[in-house]
Design a protein around this nucleic acid. Structure first.
Lengths: 243, 243
DNA sequence: CGTATCTTTGATTTACTTCAAAACTTGTGG
DNA sequence: CCACAAGTTTTGAAGTAAATCAAAGATACG
């Protein structure tokens, strides 16, 4: 099993030509609307591994759509505790949290080399008013984000360690599939520590769960490469038929 | 200590005259805009304790603004496990989760006699287009909702039982204060079972934490009436200076 | 090729759950 | 107004999932 981490050319292409258009803000727009969107969106920014898109407390300057790579969002307490609140795949939005009071509550960090498209807040009103239908898609994406976070609340509040991991892996599987990648074999670009933190577990516990699932033939895991062998059992663990 | 549960007349008044206008959708609108909003919003619906506003899986018909009482939202698994994802106070929105795919993921249930204002989805586009500034306020409220859920992820993922309870109590305290009620003395209209579920704890554990906090002089609790005695220690427990 | 980082495995501890039962509250009808 | 049933909350004792502590194996990297 080898790395399957997807890569795309970092150069700027139009929204209309972007393979992610039907997952991203441009979904449902016609050619003229996509052209307008193109003129507003910045498609240049590339980040290295562990580089910050923005920090907690900073004034919100843009909403970000992941284009390639992955972005993690995390919040911290003064005590130094931190909680990863999301792993964001290409086509997903990052930075919506800033709408609350124009400041970001969370931090956003690139996992591996990552490129993003930016929709500046100054352009936000114009875009909503002049591109028919983009508001509907934005609301859809916001709804999905809320649903996803509620699913994580369920996982953290009610599920055992193995069920939480299954929930996360199924979510990633689903989302990779939507993007045209394998639903059964993919790469986890983040360290175990990050996975464990996201799931509210100690890294040691997560490692033991991986080992147990491997022994039971549910998955193959080699470093950060993962293959799901027994999807039915994985689903059963996650208590989630739709996942 | 006696019940402090706020009550308001259930009869329909205008947004402009509503004491919650500066917390709710109408914030920042001028008189003409508030008049338009009034014509669109339904202000009649009253729910009894434990009555459902909507169920998981139902098509979204409206966004709801709590007017009096309280609404809890919860999601369930096929296995029968359930997780309460929020307690919503007057002026807060319920039902945003339906934007994802036009169906609600969560259930919304009244806690005690509760009245809500409804903004029908059919009116949603019209409102966003014709009432200047309401989109900004909607986005603010969405951002706050996202921030609040991320805070809960932090609590469930990283905090001990007592820290979680402190986090919840401070959040309620803050929100009551914003609404002109006491920040130190308020009523919890939900059973312990609901509080415990929200915090990802067994009811017995929650009860023990209440007892311990009482012994330590942090709070007085008598049934569902609560008084915070030592705010500094409560804040310290919650690891949250801004809370 | 060796150093630093990440991951896994093992042994022990602990915070929380579960099970069980008592105490308190609430509402209802005699 | 009191008795009593049904539900809710608290307290106690025992069990357990996961955390922590500790160290060995991998893996990446200059």
């Amino acid at each position: 099993m080898k790395a399957i981490r997807q890569k795309e050319a970092a150069d700027s292409i139009s929204c209309a030509a972007c393979s992610l258009v039907n997952l991203c803000l441009g979904k449902g727009l016609d050619q003229a609307e996509l052209d307008k969107l193109d003129q507003i969106i910045d498609k240049k920014t590339q980040y290295d591994n562990e580089e910050y898109l923005f920090h907690s407390g900073e004034t919100m300057t843009a909403v970000y759509a992941v284009r390639s790579g992955m972005v993690k969002t995390l919040i911290t307490t003064e005590g130094g505790a931190e909680q990863i609140t999301g792993f964001h795949l290409p086509g997903e939005l990052v930075g919506l949290d800033g709408f609350g009071d124009d400041r970001h509550l969370c931090n956003a960090v690139a996992l591996g080399t990552t490129t993003v498209c930016e929709l500046k807040v100054e352009s936000f009103d114009w875009v909503c008013e002049h591109i028919q239908g983009i508001r509907a898609q934005l609301m859809r994406m916001i709804g999905e984000e809320l649903n996803h976070e509620q699913g994580m609340l369920l996982a953290l509040g009610q599920m055992k360690a193995d069920e939480r991991l299954a929930t996360l892996l199924l979510s990633l599987s689903e989302r990779y599939k939507k993007r045209g990648f394998s639903a059964l074999e993919f790469n986890l670009p983040m360290p175990r520590h990050d996975l464990a933190n996201y799931l509210g577990l100690a890294p040691e516990t997560l490692s033991r769960i991986f080992s147990k699932m491997h022994e039971e033939g549910i998955l193959d895991v080699s470093g950060r490469d993962l293959r799901i062998l027994d999807m039915p059992r994985m689903r059963k663990l996650a208590h989630c038929s739709q996942c």
